[in-house]
């Protein structure tokens, strides 16, 4: 009889994530779901719909718009509120966008700090949010492997890796003082492959950039950049056409594509299963210095 009560690992992960989201809603005053438009956010959104069904998602979504996101991402984002019946806040750090902050001019670290980290902290404080749900996964990067599902942040939004709250069983300590906040990662235990299997199983719509297609590209410092309004060829570079797709999506100047023939979910899953490199291989921010993700998180980055 036991076999009738067996849960597949995806169902298991789904149930854990739903449990986490409900704890967040029940324990915090004002949660927000950080929506990055990527595949993990798409899964997070579906899980939030499941957690509160047949009710609506009882908190808003917020996108931190650096102004360098791929055009296809923004098109996809702008259809979300009507399609999914959610409240979406778009937050931009206009002050630094006006100052023409750009990675090539100020360096990647600084650009990220002002357009992402600082903008995120401003967005959270201006909305009075005390809990921010995000789609980060422990498998993605080694400092993330050590992060709690409920990740406590001080009044500066900073993460202190040496002083994390012990997290046992599935009992989450959500208590904070005024001005402090918690980042919550319901997808902590999911891997890239789990995300793809779930997208297929649930028939979740994602940004078309994830699928391989002939696109105009520029090759630069080992990265394949999309030739779009943000990236134009420097001297000695040329725009070429290639069959590429993106494994992760971020800002156009810092997110590289991979050459791929995977134009369907099944082909993507097959590609991920035999992949030799991690999904963040083309995310320049992780490699700038040893422990650079960890440093960013200490400053308040996701």
């Amino acid at each position: 009889m036991e076999n009738g009560y067996k849960l597949s690992y995806l169902d298991n992960l789904e149930s854990e994530s739903i449990h986490v989201m409900r704890e967040v809603f029940a324990e915090f005053e004002k949660p927000v779901l950080l929506y990055s438009i990527g595949k993990d956010s798409s899964v997070l959104l579906r899980l939030a719909q499941k957690a509160f069904y047949p009710g609506k998602i009882p908190f808003p979504l917020m996108h931190i718009d650096t102004s360098y996101k791929f055009v296809e991402m923004i098109d996809f984002r702008d259809k979300i509120p009507a399609k999914e019946n959610v409240n979406l806040i778009v937050h931009k750090n206009d002050k630094y966008i006006k100052k023409r902050m750009h990675p090539s001019k100020f360096g990647m670290d600084k650009c990220c700090k002002f357009l992402k980290t600082k903008s995120l902290l401003d967005g959270l404080s201006s909305g009075g949010f005390d809990a921010a749900l995000g789609g980060a996964r422990r498998e993605e990067e080694r400092s993330r492997a050590k992060e709690r599902i409920f990740s406590f942040r001080d009044q500066f939004g900073a993460w202190d890796p040496k002083n994390q709250r012990p997290e046992l069983w599935s009992i989450y300590n959500a208590r904070i003082n005024p001005n402090e906040s918690v980042r919550i990662f319901p997808l902590s235990n999911w891997t890239e492959l789990d995300i793809w299997h779930y997208i297929k199983k649930e028939n979740i719509e994602i940004v078309p950039l994830y699928f391989a297609k002939k696109r105009k590209i520029i090759r630069r410092d080992g990265l394949i950049l999309l030739a779009d309004q943000f990236n134009s060829p420097k001297e000695g570079e040329e725009v070429e056409e290639a069959m590429v797709r993106f494994r992760t999506l971020g800002c156009s100047p810092c997110s590289g594509a991979v050459e791929s023939e995977a134009d369907t979910l099944d082909k993507i899953i097959e590609e991920v299963m035999i992949a030799m490199n991690s999904e963040r291989e083309n995310r320049a921010i992780d490699y700038e210095t040893d422990g650079s993700m960890e440093e960013k998180k200490k400053q308040g980055y996701f």
Partner: peptide
């Protein structure tokens, strides 16, 4: 396995 800079 040692994920943190301070650990390394």
């Amino acid at each position: 396995v040692d994920g943190l800079k301070s650990e390394r």
